[in-house]
Design a protein around this nucleic acid. Structure first.
Lengths: 195, 195
DNA sequence: ACCTGAACACCGTTCAAGT
DNA sequence: ACCTGAACACCGTTCAAGT
């Protein structure tokens, strides 16, 4: 089977869901597809465009026109959170394309709820900013504060200068249940005015 | 003058404010300080701890105990926004240390406004998540959608595959004035319940 | 048209060896 | 104690040359 942008995107989605954005590199992608890195650039202009397409593919299920705002935003979190560093990807993708799902569906459902076109656009922009920050923060906390990275980064055994982080981990790493509550609470507050 | 963690942090802050996080690399830092890269690791355990200290230094002015929440959050935005990719730095720093400024001052002022200790903690967590997302999104939009990166990245002259981004730039790249409005609006909504 | 080989200009981190 | 030299294992991207 010959190379194509579709195959590259699919392989990138695979690497993302299995290992996280950190492992989605052009070189890793190339070796996964059994080609040299340069070959990818015949099908994709640069890594940014590839990531934009990956994010679009990932969020495609959020293009449903009849869901209510809260449901869309909860599903957004559920989609991005399992990708270890999915928040970083979506901040990039949103920077490249602010009409990524669920934005169009979100605007429609806000308009259906009685908001004007401009108000719906602004409300969804605020909701997306909160969601992006909440998901990225939550992932970074469990990745960076969570009992020494959890997986297997094999750090040097006890460097003296990093002592001040040892205490407070139990308190600072918010339990998963509370993160969901914070997210739901933020959504409700932001949607209160829109009713 | 010999090397020290203080000098390294100061130099990193300098590189950050002049060129952005992208140019804060251990190697660049070393050459700025006229030492070999390995020398830095005698004073700093790893890059993450360095970035945590850089963020703390940057946000030190937000440790004022008597400011009101809106003022603190507006000043947070004003501090981070001028750093080209300051949002990325603060997502990392917040992941490493959720008590970074202005969090303690924020909790105090929310308690002074009548909230219980736990409610104040949760409210400030929600506010920080929104602020981090808003600033990071705003910076990424102007960096990634803003008329081909604005500075001087010298991209190849017109690669065919990236045509779909050409249209819509005028609409998608929100003017700076509207970003400030979205931010203020989000803050007000999130603080409405806290009154 | 599509891909390889090889290079360019970088990363963070480690560590024996020098002073 | 503090730093260098040199390496290890990587990056994204370009481009002449091959088929």
């Amino acid at each position: 089977m010959s190379l194509s942008s579709e195959r590259i995107v699919e392989t990138a989605v695979g690497l993302l869901t299995e290992y996280g954005l950190h492992d989605v590199t052009m070189r890793r992608l190339a070796s996964e597809l059994s080609v040299r890195p340069g070959a990818l650039y015949y099908h994709v202009p640069h890594k940014q465009e590839l990531l934009r397409r990956v994010a679009h593919q990932l969020l495609a299920p959020l293009q449903k026109p009849d869901a209510d705002p809260v449901e869309l935003m909860l599903q957004f979190r559920d989609t991005v959170l399992p990708l270890r560093d999915g928040g970083d990807l979506l901040l990039i993708a949103y920077g490249l394309d602010q009409r990524i799902p669920p934005v169009p569906a979100l605007e429609e459902s806000l308009q259906a709820a009685g908001l004007g076109a401009d108000a719906a656009r602004r409300h969804s922009a605020v909701l997306m900013r909160f969601a992006l920050g909440a998901v990225a923060a939550e992932q970074n906390i469990s990745l960076l504060s969570g009992s020494q990275n959890a997986v297997q980064p094999a750090t040097s055994p006890g460097h003296p200068q990093s002592a001040q982080n040892a205490a407070g981990t139990a308190l600072s790493a918010a339990p998963a249940a509370e993160s969901a509550d914070l997210y739901a609470y933020g959504l409700r507050s932001l949607l209160a005015q829109a009713a």
